[in-house]
């Protein structure tokens, strides 16, 4: 029990340290990598959504302390993203496979990015009442989104490869369906 608690503690704060202090300084597009979101989706798909929910609450709370956005903005964004991922998993991508992982990562990245863009737009509009500025921000934001999708999908693929060697939690889909 204690070992499990310590394991959870290290995962939570290790990834937080990486997200807050390490990733923003990485060169180029790597700085756009959202390790928290990728981890959340991975945990939700591989293990349980409710476990991802707990992780998301803790991560969101601590990230809110280090964010210029109003308190609870990131918690709400993470939980909303997780909810959308859950609904997609429940009704569309119903098996635990590599494609499910990719699909959920893609959808989650888009949803989370959209929510952050909404926060940003509301703040800009509140301060400047300038719709043209929001339009320009949207254009820049869409470029960021493409990079984020590319990096998050790459990261989750790497996670899958590493995990798949040691676990049978993923179903074989589109692989060797011919019985011999």
């Amino acid at each position: 029990m204690l070992i499990k608690a310590i394991k959870h503690f290290f995962i939570i704060f290790g990834l937080l340290a990486i997200q807050v202090a390490l990733i923003p300084n990485l060169p180029g597009a790597l700085a756009k990598f959202n390790v928290i979101l990728v981890s959340l989706i991975f945990i939700a798909t591989v293990y349980r959504f409710y476990l991802a929910g707990i992780y998301g609450m803790v991560w969101g709370f601590v990230l809110d302390l280090y964010s210029p956005l109003p308190f609870a903005a990131i918690v709400v964004a993470l939980m909303a993203t997780l909810y959308v991922a859950y609904k997609v998993f429940e009704h569309l991508l119903t098996n635990k496979s590599f494609y499910t992982l990719l699909g959920l990562a893609l959808i989650s990245t888009i949803v989370y990015h959209l929510l952050c863009f909404v926060y940003s737009s509301v703040r800009i509009f509140n301060a400047t009442r300038d719709l043209a500025l929001i339009k320009q921000t949207a254009i820049f934001s869409s470029n960021d989104l493409l990079w984020q999708i590319a990096i998050n999908l790459t990261a989750i693929s790497v996670l899958f490869l590493v995990f798949n060697f040691s676990s049978r939690r993923f179903n074989a889909v589109f692989v060797d369906t011919i019985k011999t």
Binding site: P24, I74, C116
Partner: peptide, 14 residues
């Protein structure tokens, strides 16, 4: 400086 830009919505440092 201990971190920055964690939510990609603003250019800020911590």
């Amino acid at each position: 400086v201990i971190g920055k830009n964690i939510d990609n919505t603003q250019n800020a440092i911590i």
